[in-house]
Amino acid sequence: MDPALLREREAFKKKALATPTVEKKKTKDDSQFKDDSKKKSKSSSSVSAGPKLDATNYKTMVGSSSYRFGVLARIVRHMRARHQEGDDHPLTLDEVLDETNQLDVGNKVKQWLQSEALQNNPKIECTQDGKYIFKPVYKIKDKKSLLRLLKQQDLKGLGGILLEDVQESLPHCERALKSLAQEILYITRPTDKKKILFYNDKTATLDVDDEFVKLWRATAVDAMDDAKIEEYLEKQGIKSMQDHGPRKPIAPKRKKAAQKRRQFKKPRDNEHLADVLETYEDNTLTQKGVSIK
């Protein structure tokens, strides 16, 4: 080999060793870190691609039916409370939302309330000018209208009315019921323990002897049903009054038309053979006017 080339090679090695260099080696930790960073970037990009949740649109997103009905229930409760306090002037939708502190509802919820929910709600009545008012069970405003309603129920035989319906319909109900304490009878229904109001018709009161009252109150029938009471009265010779309710009219049965029997015509003694037939009378043969004995 040429000695000049060898000398240049050795000089190049010395120069290369004299210059400092830094070599980066790939490690497993670096690769794992890069993989994790890639996964995080992908997840963040997928989250950012979805709808953003903020204070303006989270209430109007799909699947917020529970929120809608919550807004509606709050409106109905507020309108009932207004009516019970005697405040019965109608309100617009914006006024209702303002009084219920729900002005932050979205446009879709407002549209649903205005076009469907409030229109079809049995407790809300829509006026002709587009306002809303509470719709009670009975149209009563004071104690006089309540007493008039109870009298009509009694005269027509419709029975009483529920106390909770009166409390919902009549503003300042407790005050009116207290002033009408002598005109109203309270009966507790045994099935659901709800109180029912009846008109106290004093013209139907009868004076009963105290002895009968004592006997009535001393007789305990709590452990007996109606069948046992009726059986006991029959043994004592007392017939009990029975009420089976209104009976349905029985339709009269149609009588089947009697089938007419066919009448067969009897032969008329062979009149067309009168010239041919022979008659036997008393062992006598008669034929064509000639008698043979």
Rank of each mutant, 00 (worst) to 15 (best):
Q119H: 05
C126K: 15
K131R: 13
D129T: 10
L150V: 11
D142M: 07
I140G: 00
L147G: 04
Y132I: 01
I140D: 02
Q119W: 00
K143F: 07
P136K: 04
I140Y: 03
F134M: 08
G130T: 04
N120P: 05
N120W: 09
S145W: 02
L149F: 09
F134D: 05
C126D: 00
I140F: 04
Q128P: 00
Y138W: 15
I133E: 11
K135N: 14
R148T: 12
Y132W: 11
V137W: 07
R148H: 12
N120V: 08
K123G: 01
I124N: 01
P122H: 03
L149W: 10
I124C: 06
D129A: 10
L150P: 07
E125S: 13
V137D: 14
R148N: 13
D129C: 05
K135W: 04
K141H: 10
V137T: 14
E125C: 05
T127G: 04
E125Y: 07
K135E: 04
Y132H: 01
I140R: 00
T127I: 02
K131W: 00
D129R: 08
K131D: 00
K139S: 12
L150Q: 10
Y138P: 02
K143P: 00
F134A: 10
K123A: 13
Q128E: 13
L150W: 08
S145K: 09
C126P: 05
D129S: 12
K135Y: 05
S145M: 12
K144Y: 13
T127D: 04
L146K: 02
D142I: 08
P122Q: 08
Y132E: 00
E125K: 14
C126Q: 14
I140L: 07
P136N: 09
Q128K: 11
L146I: 12
T127V: 02
C126A: 14
K144I: 12
K123R: 13
V137H: 13
L150D: 07
I133T: 15
N120M: 12
K144L: 12
S145I: 03
L150N: 09
L150T: 11
K141E: 10
F134E: 04
G130N: 09
R148K: 14
Q119V: 11
D142Q: 09
K143M: 11
S145D: 14
Y138D: 08
K139D: 14
S145E: 15
K143E: 15
R148Q: 13
T127M: 10
K144Q: 14
Y132A: 01
E125D: 12
P136E: 10
C126G: 04
D142N: 15
K144W: 09
K144V: 14
K135R: 15
D129W: 04
K139I: 06
L146S: 03
K135D: 09
L146A: 06
I124E: 00
R148G: 12
I133G: 08
S145Y: 03
N121H: 15
N121M: 03
C126R: 14
N120D: 15
S145R: 07
P122L: 06
K123V: 02
G130D: 02
K143N: 11
D129P: 05
C126T: 15
L146C: 07
L118N: 02
L147E: 14
D129H: 06
Q119I: 06
K141Y: 11
C126N: 09
K123M: 12
E125I: 03
